[in-house]
Design a protein around this nucleic acid. Sequence first.
DNA 1: TGTACTGTAATAAATATAATTACAGTATGA
DNA 2: TCATACTGTAATTATATTTATTACAGTACA
Lengths: 142, 142
Amino acid sequence: MSHARFAINIHILTILANTGKGEMVGMVWVSSEFIAGSIDINPVLVRKEISHLRKAGLVDSKEGKNGGSALAKPASKIFLSDVYKSVYEKPVLGNVKNHSNAQCPIAQQINEHLEVLYQSAEDAILEKLGCTTLQQFSDKFH
Amino acid sequence: MSHARFAINIHILTILANTGKGEMVGMVWVSSEFIAGSIDINPVLVRKEISHLRKAGLVDSKEGKNGGSALAKPASKIFLSDVYKSVYEKPVLGNVKNHSNAQCPIAQQINEHLEVLYQSAEDAILEKLGCTTLQQFSDKFH
DNA sequence: TGTACTGTAATAAATATAATTACAGTATGA
DNA sequence: TCATACTGTAATTATATTTATTACAGTACA
């Protein structure tokens, strides 16, 4: 999928985090249409992303009239690394799809060596994103 | 460009690092056709990537018959973070292209907050890749 | 001077991403 | 109980990005 999915998901979650807080209603169901309007993308895309977030246990949704979505747990218990994981599709460094029917001895081994390297890059990202909670991130908005 | 550029560039450099060493000729010019055959991509793409590597000062090329490319400095002085930089186009977490004409207060601020976050992810990747030299990476091949 | 390269532009083909349309299913409340 | 306002999801189309290919001028060598 998109190269902007992480940003879109953070945006969705930030809205949900701030809506609960801002409205003081405890449980506010936010519609995909409202979120899509804020991000300026199609509501169907928002619902697809929310579907991932729901599977990751970060969001709950309610069908029917007055339905929508809300955080499934406190923003202070959602780490940005959780979001990264729910969005994950490809390594941050890109695909390791190199080759290869070649006779070249490097071609034969490079994929496994690249995979080790790529995994360490993933670990570094997860560690970095694990330092921040959605609460901390959304507290920056005023 | 591609999501596989980093892997392609590492592959190119690994071939150059190993060729010099393996052949014991000091300066071996490797053709784009040979490299392309190893990676199993088009030679023109290889030449484009080499053009970036050359601009980054990592590779030298020689035109004309028996021409080709070679490392511009010892593999022990090329860090994988240098390669990352020469390939860089977009943040590892993707584009921050969100929105937004919306009235939503979150939409108004999210880009700047995402950019700070994305920058810290870039820093983490650079730090990780800065721990390994091309020499260390290509020593894994035997 | 023919050959084997690089460098680069232009174009086409393939693939990936995003928007849109459509519609069945569900909860609400008038 | 029925109109309304949502979700969930599939299918299709539009758009953008990536990759391969073609073409050819320029360069060095033997």
